[in-house]
């Protein structure tokens, strides 16, 4: 049976038939590792993040890496053309990806990307929003909840000031942006279920 890991972070979604499931999984791991490392580097540059306990840093990164990557790579989802460009540079049609078994998750990713892109965030706003997403105090397993909450609150304050400053006439823009966070959580859960199904298969 062919194994297809049609993830935009996978360099080789359509695998060679002679590869073992273990080899396919290892190739996939090598494909997404640089992106994960970049998320860690990003986290290190969030003021205050490195002051959190190492365990809390790891917990936040483990729980939030997918969401950070989703925000970062939302532009890979071309809603108008109904295509996704993978990190390999190859562009796949939505139809082809659905044929690879990526139906429901992909539709929700497109929907999220469209909503996020419609806010037309500046690079600075997007970076701060990503920091807020990563420093989420409600992730399970946080040891020093107070420290994470304080950091998240300060990041949200700065984000609110920044968003208000760039669009003073649109008071709802900040609210709309924060409402993307539950959408990301839903996507994260769907993605986790997908990953688990591959492992079980």
């Amino acid at each position: 049976k062919d194994i297809v890991l049609a993830c935009p972070m996978n360099m080789f979604p359509q695998t060679e038939p002679n590869k073992t499931p273990q080899e396919i999984w290892e190739d996939f791991s090598l494909s997404f590792t640089p992106a994960v490392r970049e998320v860690v580097e990003f986290a290190k540059h969030i003021p205050g993040f490195s002051a959190l306990s190492e365990n809390d840093q790891v917990t936040l990164l483990k729980a939030g890496t997918f969401e950070v990557l989703m925000v970062r790579f939302a532009s890979l989802f071309n809603v108008k053309e109904q295509t996704v460009t993978f990190i390999s540079g190859t562009t796949y049609s939505l139809e082809a990806l659905k044929g690879m078994g990526m139906g429901g998750l992909l539709d929700t990713m497109f929907e999220f990307s469209e909503k996020l892109n419609s806010l037309e965030l500046t690079a600075e706003e997007l970076g701060l929003f990503t920091a807020v997403v990563l420093v989420s105090a409600d992730r399970s397993g946080i040891e020093n909840l107070n420290s994470v909450e304080l950091l998240q609150e300060s990041l949200i304050r700065v984000l609110r000031a920044l968003v208000s400053k760039s669009n003073p006439c649109d008071a709802s823009r900040f609210t709309k942006l924060l409402l993307k966070m539950p959408d990301l959580r839903t996507l994260n859960n769907m993605h986790s279920e997908k990953l688990l199904s591959f492992r079980i298969d």
Binding site: T33, R37, V40, E41, K44, E54, V58, K62, L195, L196
Partner: peptide, 27 residues
């Protein structure tokens, strides 16, 4: 419901990347 992040080996990648920073930090 097992942990997909562990399945991906994500914790290992994250810990190594975080430690990389400590090694590079000037004394």
């Amino acid at each position: 419901f097992s942990d997909p992040a562990s399945n991906l080996g994500l914790e290992d990648i994250i810990r190594k990347a975080l430690m990389g920073n400590l090694e590079e930090r000037p004394e």
